[in-house]
Computed example of a mutant assay.
Amino acid sequence: MDYQAYGNDYTIKPLVTELKNPVKNILLVGNSFMYFNCGVNPMLVGIAASKGIKLVLTLVGISGSSLYWHDVKSYLRPNGLRSYAFSSDGKNTLQFINYPNGKIFDAVVLEDSSQGPIHPELNKLFAQSVARHGADVRATGAEPMLMMTWAYKGRPEMTRQLADAITKEANKNRMPVAPCGLAFARALREMPQLELIRTDNRHPTVAGTYLEACVFFASLLKQTPEGAGFFGKYDDMSVDPETGAGLQRAAWETVCDFNGW
Rank of each mutant, 00 (worst) to 15 (best):
P225N: 07
A131M: 10
I53S: 08
L247F: 02
S114P: 00
L221H: 00
E212V: 03
L122G: 03
L188N: 08
L211I: 04
W252S: 08
L28M: 02
F105N: 04
Y3R: 13
G30E: 01
K172S: 14
L182F: 06
K51G: 00
Y210I: 00
P204Q: 14
V239C: 04
V239E: 03
E195Q: 15
M191I: 12
T149E: 04
N201T: 11
A139V: 08
R249D: 07
K103P: 05
F184Q: 00
K153D: 12
I97L: 15
M1C: 10
V137Q: 06
W150M: 01
P176V: 10
I62C: 03
A85S: 13
N171S: 13
L15Y: 07
A85V: 12
P179A: 15
T243E: 03
W252I: 00
V206K: 04
K54A: 12
L110K: 07
N171E: 12
S83W: 03
N25I: 09
P156H: 08
G39V: 07
W261M: 07
R198W: 08
G229A: 10
G260S: 09
K124Q: 14
M43V: 06
Y84S: 14
G80D: 04
G229D: 07
N123R: 15
R155I: 02
M147Y: 12
S114I: 10
S238P: 02
N8R: 11
P179M: 11
Q128H: 11
F216A: 05
D164Y: 11
N171Q: 09
P179Q: 12
N171D: 13
C256A: 15
M191A: 11
Y152Q: 14
C38G: 10
L19S: 05
R82Y: 09
A139T: 13
P225H: 03
L125P: 02
G80H: 05
C38Y: 15
R160P: 03
D235F: 09
S83I: 05
W252N: 02
I104G: 06
R132H: 14
V177D: 00
